[in-house]
């Protein structure tokens, strides 16, 4: 199961990296003669379009292949941003205790108590959609789980005698973190990051679908579903092809995360 999931992600990464080599056509080149062509081996422009063309005559397969770049780039980058932020804040809350701990955990509670997509929409509405904004906003939406797990791990270890012994021998906090805390939470972090990746990819697609994510003509799965919405009746493939790829990606990645969790760290179930 995890193997299958891992292979799927690797293949997807390969497709994204090699997009210019694999994609049959330029994803943003329009061809008015070949507009809204159904999946075909010989279109009106004399070319094969395995997944058809969209309302501007662009090849849907090529766009879906390039769309993987956006999904994975934003997804992985957002996971990194959220992970760094969450791990840092979690360590800070755990080691410092006191008011930094209270502030950080109150923030976490407040964020969990609110549908983040509304806030994301507000922020993007004002700052304007761009790759950096998208990555930061989606990253911000996912720091809480990391922070909670790190904090509780620190609290558990901080009171152990060997940590006192390290301090007594002159070992630094950094040493405790690097040698004792991070190795202990590594498997939890892998599980959280996998589940977060699925969430980040879906959130990016959702924002792009709403017109707040990646802007045309750059192809993204969410944006393609949005573009095809008006042609559902006559050209169903425009929305369906990227939508199904997106749905499969989300299901497989999150199932892999579930599976890793049950294998590596069943205590995360409640999170």
């Amino acid at each position: 199961m995890a193997l299958g999931g891992g292979v799927f992600v690797l293949v997807l990464v390969g497709v994204a990296l090699a997009a210019p080599l694999i994609a049959p056509y330029d994803p943003i080149r329009q061809s008015l003669r070949a507009r809204l062509a159904a999946p075909t081996l010989a279109g009106a422009d004399g070319k094969a379009h395995l997944l058809g063309t969209d309302h501007l005559g662009r090849d849907v397969l090529s766009r879906a292949i390039y769309g993987a770049r956006v999904s994975l780039l934003v997804g992985f980058a957002a996971v990194v941003v959220g992970g760094i932020l969450g791990v840092t804040l979690g360590l800070l809350a755990g080691f410092r205790g006191g008011w930094p701990d209270s502030v950080i955990m109150t923030l976490a509670d407040a964020q969990l108590a609110f549908p983040f997509i509304l806030l994301a929409i507000g922020i993007i509405a004002v700052l304007g959609p761009s790759f950096p904004t998208l990555i930061v906003v989606i990253g911000l939406s996912g720091w809480v789980t990391y922070a909670r797990v790190l904090r509780s791990q620190v609290l558990v270890l901080r009171s152990r005698e060997f940590v006192d012994a390290i301090h007594a021998l002159g070992g630094s906090v950094a040493r405790v973190i690097a040698r004792h805390i991070l190795p202990n939470v590594l498997s939890s972090l892998v599980v959280i990051a996998t589940l977060e990746l699925a969430r980040a990819i879906v959130l990016e697609a959702t924002l792009s679908f709403l017109g707040l994510g990646v802007q045309p003509p750059t192809p993204s799965w969410g944006g393609m579903v949005h573009e095809g919405r008006e042609y559902l009746d006559s050209a169903w493939w425009i929305s369906t092809a990227p939508g199904i790829v997106l749905m499969l990606t989300s299901i497989i990645v999150s199932r892999t995360g579930d599976w890793l969790r049950d294998l590596l760290d069943p205590t995360l179930r409640g999170e």
């Binding site: 959702t206 679908f209 559902l232 369906t240 939508g243 997106l246 749905m247 989300s250 199932r255």
Partner: peptide
Amino acid sequence: LVGQSAPTFFIGILLILVVSL
């Protein structure tokens, strides 16, 4: 499982496609 991980907007699109159209 599908309902929990599929994006809401695409569930809507699929329902429109199958049930309505």
